[in-house]
Design a protein around this nucleic acid. Sequence first.
DNA 1: TCCGTCGGTGTAATCGATTCCACGAGCACA
DNA 2: TGTGCTCGTGGAATCGATTACACCGACGGA
Lengths: 339, 339
Amino acid sequence: MASIKDVAAEAGVSVATVSRVLNDHPSVSAEARARVLAAVETLGYRPNAVARSLRTDQTHTLGLVISDVMNPYFTELARSVEEEARALGYSVIIGNADERPDLQDHHVRNLLDRRIDGLLVSPTDGGSPLMLDAVRAGTPMVFVDRWIPGVDVPVVRADGRAAVRDLVAHLHGLGHRRLAIIAGPAATTTGQERVEAFREALGAYGLELPDAYIGQGDFQAESGRLVTEGFLDLAEPPQVVFAADNLMALGALDAVRARGLRVPDDLALAAFDDVRWFVHTDPPITAIAQPTGELGRAAVRALVDRIEGRPGESVTLPARLVVRRSCGENPTPVQRSTT
Amino acid sequence: MASIKDVAAEAGVSVATVSRVLNDHPSVSAEARARVLAAVETLGYRPNAVARSLRTDQTHTLGLVISDVMNPYFTELARSVEEEARALGYSVIIGNADERPDLQDHHVRNLLDRRIDGLLVSPTDGGSPLMLDAVRAGTPMVFVDRWIPGVDVPVVRADGRAAVRDLVAHLHGLGHRRLAIIAGPAATTTGQERVEAFREALGAYGLELPDAYIGQGDFQAESGRLVTEGFLDLAEPPQVVFAADNLMALGALDAVRARGLRVPDDLALAAFDDVRWFVHTDPPITAIAQPTGELGRAAVRALVDRIEGRPGESVTLPARLVVRRSCGENPTPVQRSTT
DNA sequence: TCCGTCGGTGTAATCGATTCCACGAGCACA
DNA sequence: TGTGCTCGTGGAATCGATTACACCGACGGA
């Protein structure tokens, strides 16, 4: 592969001049510029990004560590992150933590070793020493979707409180009184928050959220299935299950199907995160939709701001309820997801 | 951030010795090794991967350019690729081409500039000059799922011919005679092959595949919807639609729903690619399942073989039919996906 | 005519690693 | 005792870029 020296030789100039042309520095004669460009063309030269990064201490690369690539929510997030980053002249390296703190650390370390310019993280846990060190060392960082409390890093996320209140209103209106939740890991902020929001919303109707109706999941489908089985085995099973993410809702659906029961007649179901497939499931699933694309883009903007020396602010966007048929026949007009 | 020089100073040895310890070169005294390790610890030193890559001309990184991240098939592929690569000591940088040749080229160029050790591609088109140049220049490469004919690069893919024959047998057994296909882009091998396999399988039953029953899609949901609308508008609409990927099947479902029709009564539906959600759609969708995880792993092994100077062979694995209810009531026992 | 300025250019240092080569000490063997 | 190893080590070149600095010629103004 041709290097800058080869180009310089071919064009009959010094490497400095070649470099100047490539970075369009003003003081280069039109003559020299033309010769360099011609040489670049004939040699098919492409600058070595590795060498450039070593010298400039910039990689123009963002690291994105997400909790689970197989989760359509994070896939969509990753996609919007990459798009916005590309528009701003950055590439993205994605690390998939699979909800495992050790894997998350592996990727963070790897990305840091590669000297990425900034890190976008949706933490799987409360923050490993490695991550905390990285923050302390001044690595530009932004949390997206989930965050680590007590750490001074901008957070870009959706606030689901209002939407959860709307959901509970909807459920209460349909006559449901025994409402259960499949929670995410307590080590994640979204895991905790969604339970809290749910409990609070129930409180407004004088309803309790007993411990037996809080199932501990891990944001993966299998845990949703297990928790739902547990609910169905209770002496007094809940009338509704609210899954804290779309995969656990899928698992809940599995559990209901496996017993030959029907949604919503035997058990109503709602989910946090709206995904495309929810329109086509049997029945279509009522869900809380996050402005995923907007979150990804805002996160990138905040991170790039930090990298380039600007403040870089936290952003909170509202989520909204999308009513379908999985909680019972619908007294209000059906809203459709615009995704 | 501490560099190797700082470590050398701290340990009271030369940078050469530090480097030897880090790459556990044999001829280092136990004494020196201990001092270096201690210095590494106290400084929290991590080798700069950028500098290392520049010197060794190896990045221990694989590039993966896939056609569409939002497609669960490719997501699963990406996941298995990353897993196997990690096991072999490589990282993966994913580029999402979104079925757009220009974006594909953008990512290939970017990856090449970063001097990745090898490239895994599922080409969106028949091969741009850039890609062809890369092959000619000797970049280790492997095609996965789709490939570019006439190029000497190993191909790792699933063969769906037998499964398509099984599908047609199943459909014929249910009494369907007017069968249509939503094809993928003709510029992709999978786009062409699936049509060919379908036509061939129909031939075995003396059935034709008229042009009116070949809808041109682009592997995205929206095209599946449009093509299906077209089919439904025909004077003699087909009885079955076979979508060449899972997203176009989703689009077809949209079209059928929008007209207030039912699957399979008004129109039967089958798809290439089995995804988790197909179990839960209304009705569950009959599909051809690829051994996606195995494909990803085999592709990585082939690529790493090439990189490390071993041959690196093509692999073809069989796909298989998974019968569900979307083509009509099932005369044979239901098979379940094991994914 | 002379001096200062400025545009265009090249030389060389630099980034942080790896690795070739040389060198000195210690040891075995003749 | 001298020769020739091996072992451990450091010095310095190198990878491919960027960029500070020096230099040279042309040109304008006094």
